[in-house]
C-alpha cells in the first residue's frame, strides 16, 4: 500500500512557479530518489511535504493524514522526518543533546513531573538516553557524541543531521542531499547507512541526490524534476534511458550510471 501521495502540487512564489502540477507516490519500504538540475524544485517539494511550505494548489497525503496545510511539528508527529540540505542543527549543543531533542514527541510526561524529575520523567529519560546511544552506535558517531555540533567537520555534521532525523523513529525519512560535499569514503559510509536504515529500521526513504551513480545504485524508483515539472519517472534503468532526462542533464552533468 503506497504511503506518500503528492497530487497535482503547484507552488508559486510571487508569480513564479517553483513546482507545477507535480504528482508522485512513494510506496512503503522503498528508496525513492528525486533528481534534477539545480533550482529544479527538489527542496521546495520536500518543504511542502514537511510543512515548511504549503502548496498553492494540490494535495499531499501520508497514509490517512492530510499534510497539505499541516504545521511542521504536526507532520513530524505523523512519522515524517527530514534531514536538511543546509544543516539545521543546534550548533551549540552536543551530538547527544541534538539527538535527545529528536525524542521530544516520544516522551510523555507533564511539566510537574519535569520539575520534580521524579517518576515518569526520570524513568523515561533513562530509556530515552539508551535509545539515543543506540542511534549513536548505529551511525558510528561514538567519538563525537560529547562535542558541540558546530565544531565538527562538515561531513560529520551531515551524518549528525541524518542521525537526528533517524532518532525521530520515522516511518518516512526525507533526505535532502545527505552526501553533498563529502569525499568518496564518506559517501560510501552514507550509502551504507541509508541501506541499513531501510533494511534494519524498515523506514521508507525519499532521497534527493546529485550523484547519479549513487542514485541509480540504491533507488527502487526515481523521479526527475526540471524547472518545477516532473519530466520522468520509473526504475533507475528506465529513467537513465529516457531522452528527456538526458536532454535536461546535457551540459549540466553526465549521466554516470
Amino acid at each position: 500500500m503506497p504511503q506518500l501521495h503528492v497530487e497535482n502540487v503547484t507552488l508559486t512564489f510571487g508569480g513564479l512557479n517553483a513546482l507545477t502540477d507535480v504528482s508522485l507516490t512513494v510506496p512503503e519500504g522503498e528508496i525513492v530518489s528525486i533528481i534534477g538540475p539545480n533550482g529544479a524544485g527538489k527542496t521546495s517539494l520536500l518543504n511542502c511535504v514537511s510543512g515548511f511550505y504549503h502548496p498553492t494548489r494540490g494535495q499531499i497525503r501520508f497514509g490517512e493524514h492530510d499534510l497539505t496545510h499541516a504545521a511542521p511539528n504536526v507532520i513530524t508527529g505523523y512519522g515524517v522526518a527530514r534531514a536538511f540540505q543546509n544543516l539545521e542543527l543546534f550548533r551549540g549543543l552536543s551530538v547527544t543533546e541534538n539527538l535527545l531533542l529528536a525524542r521530544h514527541t516520544h516522551l510523555r510526561y507533564g511539566l510537574l513531573s519535569s520539575l520534580l524529575y521524579y517518576g515518569r520523567a526520570s524513568r523515561q529519560e533513562a530509556q530515552n538516553r539508551a535509545y539515543v546511544e543506540g542511534i549513536i552506535d548505529f551511525m558510528e558517531l561514538e567519538e563525537h557524541r560529547a562535542h558541540p555540533v558546530g565544531t565538527l567537520a562538515y561531513g560529520i555534521q551531515k551524518r549528525v543531521e541524518v542521525a537526528r532525523a533517524l532518532t525521530l523513529a520515522p516511518r518516512l525519512l526525507l533526505l535532502d542531499e545527505p552526501m553533498a560535499g563529502m569525499n568518496v569514503e564518506e559517501k560510501e559510509d552514507m550509502v551504507r547507512f541509508i541501506l541499513d536504515i531501510k533494511r534494519e529500521h524498515g523506514v521508507t526513504v525519499v532521497l534527493i541526490e546529485h550523484d547519479l551513480g549513487v542514485v541509480m545504485d540504491i533507488s527502487d524508483r526515481v523521479y526527475v524534476l526540471d524547472f518545477g515539472q516532473l519530466i520522468a519517472a520509473g526504475t533507475p534503468a528506465q529513467v537513465s534511458a529516457d531522452p528527456r532526462v538526458i536532454a535536461a542533464y546535457t551540459g549540466a552533468q553526465e549521466l554516470s550510471a
Binding site: S50, G51, F52, A71, P72, N73, T76, G77, A81, R82, F84, E88, L89, F90, R91, G92, L93, E97, L100, L101, A102, R103, H104, T105, L107, Y109, L111, S113, S114, L115, L116, Y117, A121, E125, R164, L168
Partner: peptide, 25 residues
C-alpha cells in the same frame, strides 16, 4: 530538573533554531 527533560530542551531548541525545533516535533 526541567533543563534535563523534554520541556527544558524544547525551550533551548526554540531559542537556537526554531525551524529545526519544529522539525523535531
Amino acid at each position: 530538573n526541567v533543563l534535563r527533560t523534554r520541556h527544558g530542551r524544547a525551550m533551548i531548541a526554540v531559542r537556537d533554531n526554531d525551524r529545526a525545533a519544529a522539525a523535531m516535533g
